[in-house]
Amino acid sequence: MHILAFLIRRAVQALVVMFVISIIGFSIQDNLGDPLRELVGQSVSEAEREALRDELGLNDPFLVQYARFLGNAVQGDLGTSYFFKRPAIDVILDKFPATFELVLGAVFIFVSVSIPAGIYCAIHRDSWLTRIIMTGSIVGISIPVFLTAIFMVWLFGVELGWLPAFGRGDTVTLPWGWDTGFLTWDGISHLILPSITLSSIMLPLFIRLIRAEMLEAMGTDYVRFARAKGLSTWRVRYVHAFRNTLLPVVTVGGLMIGTLIAYTILTETVFQWPGMGFLFLEAVNRVDTPLIIAYIIVVGLIFVVVNTLVDFIYTLINPMVKLPGAKG
């Protein structure tokens, strides 16, 4: 029951956030140039334009327009893309799998590198490898992503020619209409460079975070007590110390996923990755307002869902936080 209460409370919070995002989206629509210019050519007379404005409701008061926008949005109608002449939401969702798989690849690389590296640096505080990793992470923090991206394209894509640096490669369409690149070697090899680039944004920071948290945990009394109980080194390190680093790591990690999504725009553009971010940048260039708004709203929704999930996981792994409604 208490998990239900938690979910309901979070759902209400999520609705509030989505409401704010919708206002932002709508204001953009109002301020991004004249939609008529995109819809009709130069040849249409001013009187005809005015009639069309009335018909489209562009002369209605702000609140009426917003209410209409919200009403349509709730039904999944975010307008029709000027360029694609299709519902904006459909255009965006077609690109969703590509972005999702890119983020998944980045998260995978980043979890499987940062955790072992962070733990290693905490345990072998003075080894040469630790020094290399720690120095490297400082350098990594200070290099802008687009430089990493361009460097990767140049080195692995062009100079060495080891890995493809443009596009998604071969994809397989799954029964429910999801295009996946995970099932072909070509798809996976196309994923490697962009995922590494995307994960490099937070990798250095995360290695340092895990190292710091692990070091702190290793110095606590409960870890000392665990050793005094005669437990194996493995158990002391992973069951007692590492478990306690999970809370801050999950929290920061959850926040970082937001950053990661933001950086997909850049990564996808450099690697010509056919995802939502690439599409978004094209939409901005074409002033395809419905598409821009649809992107903002879809990404806003993803943020909200991810944050709720992170909160939920945090609650599950932290015995100190009781879900509301639970006794204790």
């Binding site: 606590t220 009394d221 409960y222 870890v223 000392r224 007590f225 665990a226 005094a228 109980k229 069951v239 007692h240 478990r243 306690n244 999970l246 809370l247 792994i317 932290n318 015995p319 100190m320």
Partner: peptide
């Protein structure tokens, strides 16, 4: 066996 000074920090907070 050992008994530590401060029982508030001797036991691991995330294990039963």
């Amino acid at each position: 066996s050992m008994i530590f000074q401060d029982p508030m920090v001797t036991l691991n907070p995330v294990l039963t």
